[in-house]
């Protein structure tokens, strides 16, 4: 990782989380999409949306990470991600900004921190006063890295 990389940042319960911008295909307001509940799917699956005729499953990030439920509001966004042939929507509380981290501003999760969600965390990014937990979307969405 030599070049600086950009991340989309959102805030959940006061903590900043980031997703690599190359993994986000587009971002929509939640109220702009209709979600159809998918019967008998795992709890964190919000349902299916139709994105210009494509069938896209959407997940609730809070539920997936085991964070307490928060009421949806006008800030709620859905991030559309594309992996190989799969398109998946991720519902987050908001999108606050984008941030760029130099390689030296990225570090692994410090030892000693014990969290059940640790496996979803890729790196910690630090810049001035910003501390962003960068998430591993492939791990969260359970996407096997077939082509690598």
């Amino acid at each position: 990782m030599d070049k600086p990389r950009q991340y989309i940042v959102f805030n959940m319960d006061g903590e900043d989380y980031g997703i690599d911008i190359s993994e986000a295909h587009e971002i929509s307001r939640l109220k702009e999409v209709t979600i159809m509940e998918f019967p008998r799917a795992p709890d964190f699956v919000e349902g299916i949306i139709s994105l210009r005729g494509e069938i896209v499953p959407a997940i609730d990030l809070r539920k997936k990470m085991g964070i307490e439920y928060k009421k949806r509001d006008k800030e709620t966004r859905i991030i559309i991600s594309k992996f190989d042939k799969k398109i998946i929507g991720i519902i987050v509380d908001n999108i606050t900004k984008t941030i760029e981290f130099e390689p030296e501003e990225i570090s692994l999760v410090p030892e000693g921190i014990k969290d059940i969600n640790l496996k979803y965390v890729k790196f910690i990014g630090k810049k001035d006063t910003d501390i962003v937990t960068i998430l591993d979307l492939r791990e969260i969405l359970n996407i096997q890295e077939e082509n690598r």
Binding site: T34, R40, I48, S50
Partner: peptide, 23 residues
């Protein structure tokens, strides 16, 4: 092991005329 799990009885989805989805 996939995102939606092993749900029986559904073979696909379709987008209806009103933009809604049906299984």
């Amino acid at each position: 092991g996939k995102l939606l799990g092993d749900v029986k009885g559904i073979s696909g989805a379709t987008v209806l005329g009103d933009g809604n989805i049906a299984y």
